[in-house]
Simulated scan of single mutants.
Amino acid sequence: MHAVQQNQRATLVVLDEVHHVAAEASWGTAVRRMIGDVVSGEIHARAVLNMTGTLFRSNPKLSAIDHTEPLKLLFVAPTLIAARRAARALDRITGTQYAYLVTSEEPYALSNLRIAAEEPRSCAIVTVRMVTEGFDCPHVATIAYATNIVAPLFVSQMMARAMRRTETERSSGKVLPAKILIPDHPVLRAAFVSAIQDAIPLADDEPSDEEQRAEGPQEPRMPRYELLGSDDPHLESVDVLDQPDSEVGPTELADAISLCETIHVPTVYAPRVALGLRHRPPPTDAG
């Protein structure tokens, strides 16, 4: 019906929650058939407006390397409870078994970590302090840093997980920017800024002697790390992963943020404040 309409008159197509039309999703296939393909330049609609995409599922950079390798999300959780809830949420949102739960309390954790790293499709690795030294998965392109650890070595190790180049990046010369999501807290922001400023190669992506000779001494080299930018996502709703009945809607969240600002509490705690307000006992008459 929509395809016929587009052939009959000029049509603006508006896609809300655009992450649901990702390339590997069934909706993505349907929408591509209806609207066309930006990459090929064949668009059937007069115009397309995409709205409210989720970063790690809709980032147009999955096309920067022509979908030749499966890019992955690394979700760093603070506790086992939070990790389990995050894994279930990712599976529910994607409609697939998208998340690999890798924690020391889970059976076969190291085997699951190896399987996730070698998985030939995009997936999420949800972990609690297990992906440090010795983990090698260049396909990790996005990190959701949902913990409060600010130790410089740990932060640097986590950043490095998203900064390794895949074979396609090496052969094509196209570098995929790392995406790192962190809570909006001044201490965490400062920790990551410091780690980026002080970043040094972590035994990764250093050119071999043969590569250096092939490049030639006259060819300039790009900096090891480059900060392309940062932005504030302004979340509409959140889940407090380690609490029951944890979804906080936009109205509750806005009220809690306003209260936090009034009483000088960091707004990163607003979701928990909202839960506290939700479950507070009703007032009683003094008389």
Rank of each mutant, 00 (worst) to 15 (best):
H2D: 14
V4K: 15
V14S: 07
E17C: 04
H19N: 01
V21Q: 00
V21H: 00
A22D: 03
A23Y: 01
A23W: 02
G28D: 01
A30D: 08
I35E: 05
D37K: 07
G41K: 01
E42H: 11
R46I: 01
A47W: 13
A47S: 15
G53Y: 04
L62M: 10
H67F: 02
L71R: 05
L73C: 03
P78G: 05
I81T: 15
A86M: 12
A89C: 06
D91W: 10
I93T: 04
Y108V: 04
E119N: 14
P120G: 09
R121D: 03
A124R: 12
V126C: 04
T127F: 00
M130D: 03
T132H: 02
E133F: 07
G134M: 03
F135A: 06
V140G: 08
A141F: 12
A141M: 06
I143P: 06
Y145C: 14
A146M: 12
V150Y: 00
V150S: 09
A151N: 15
V155T: 04
S156E: 11
M158L: 10
R161T: 04
A162Q: 06
A162R: 02
R164L: 08
R164P: 12
T166F: 07
E167S: 12
E167G: 13
S171P: 05
S171Q: 12
S172G: 05
L176P: 02
P186E: 10
P186S: 11
P186Q: 09
S194D: 12
Q197D: 12
I200T: 13
I200D: 09
D205N: 14
D205M: 02
P207C: 02
R213D: 15
Q218Y: 11
P220T: 12
Y225S: 04
L227D: 00
G229S: 06
H234F: 11
L235V: 14
E236P: 03
D239M: 08
L241W: 01
D242A: 10
D242V: 11
S246K: 04
E247H: 08
P250D: 03
P250E: 04
P250I: 04
T251C: 03
E252W: 00
A256P: 07
I257D: 07
S258Q: 15
S258V: 02
T262Y: 09
H264R: 15
P266L: 01
P266A: 02
V268W: 15
Y269G: 06
Y269V: 08
Y269P: 01
V273E: 08
V273A: 14
A274H: 05
L275H: 05
P283Q: 14
